[in-house]
Simulated scan of single mutants.
Amino acid sequence: MSRRPTTARRPADGGSIPFVGSFHPKSRPSPILSVGLVIVGALLVVGYIYHGSGGRYDLEAFNRLEGGSCAVEILSALPFLKKAYGDGMKKVLHVGSDTCSVVSNLLKEDDTEAWGIEPYELDDVDGNCKSLVRKGLVRAADIKFSLPYRAKSFSIAIVSDALDYLSPKYLNKTLPELARVAADGVVMFSGYPGQQRAKMPELSKFGRPAKFRSSSWWVRFFVQSNLEENEAAIKKFEQAAAKKSYKPACQVFHLKAYH
């Protein structure tokens, strides 16, 4: 974004600055100059996002510009999730927006199978996402109701950028469903209170703005819903993260599966 140039005050004695008399104090920048500044600004933004060998996108930089995403945080936390769950990371279900990107990255990991659920219709997706849908690895489903999987179909379920949009009424259905289909537990990524809210296009998809809750709110909700936090996984995750000085940009909760 170009900044409007500040008009300097003209000194009383114009002769003290060479050529000052050639500038009219009320002159305006030409339209061509304004357009040029906008184009340069846009190129700088694109250059910031699109860099590195092979022309790969820096997803973290992109999401910083777009307001942030807990889906990106999953990729940052992946090494520590592996430390916490070990073999439990071999068969993963991701639920939330940008699930095609998450599933694609998970499939690059050795010995990892991954599936994804988008909480709204898959519109205007890229070729990679269409391929995942054709293979049956990604599907759209209303997460406010029963998930289309049998109990313990996956080792672990990871949810991001979805629960913040649900009211407690539907959270009471969605979180137990995730605990039902995951054998080794649920990892939940949620925004911090005060974080930037969703962009307008996302509001139409979810039907309501995000409501970021505090960790104490979530803990009370877990207790009321008979969902038990996975203390062993929490300890392993935090120890691994501390060794690398990793601090998540989103809240991370670990819940036990239903047995």
Rank of each mutant, 00 (worst) to 15 (best):
E73Y: 05
N63M: 14
L59A: 09
E60C: 10
L65H: 04
F62P: 04
S53E: 14
V46C: 04
V72K: 04
I74S: 02
H51Y: 01
G67P: 13
A61E: 06
L43M: 10
V72S: 09
L43Y: 11
I74L: 11
E60F: 09
G47M: 03
V46P: 00
F62V: 08
I49N: 02
G55P: 08
A61P: 01
E66F: 10
E60L: 07
A61Q: 11
A71M: 01
L43K: 08
I49G: 00
R56G: 02
G68W: 07
G55S: 12
E60N: 11
D58G: 15
I49Q: 10
S69D: 11
V72P: 00
E66H: 07
G55N: 12
I74E: 02
E60G: 11
H51I: 08
L43W: 12
L44R: 05
G68M: 04
R56W: 03
L43D: 09
E66K: 07
F62H: 05
E73A: 10
I49V: 06
F62K: 05
Y48T: 00
A61S: 09
I49F: 01
S53M: 15
E60T: 10
F62W: 05
N63G: 10
C70T: 14
A71N: 03
G67K: 08
R64T: 14
I74T: 00
G54R: 06
D58S: 15
R64L: 13
I74G: 03
V46L: 05
R64I: 06
S69A: 15
L59D: 07
E73M: 07
N63Y: 14
R64G: 14
G54Q: 00
S53H: 15
G67H: 12
H51T: 04
L65Y: 10
L44K: 03
V46R: 05
E73G: 06
D58A: 14
A71P: 02
E66S: 14
L44T: 06
G52E: 12
S53T: 15
L43T: 10
V45T: 01
Y48M: 00
S53K: 15
G55L: 12
E66W: 10
D58P: 13
I49M: 05
E60I: 08
V72Q: 04
G52P: 09
Y57Q: 12
A42W: 12
E60Y: 12
L43N: 05
Y50V: 01
F62C: 06
N63W: 14
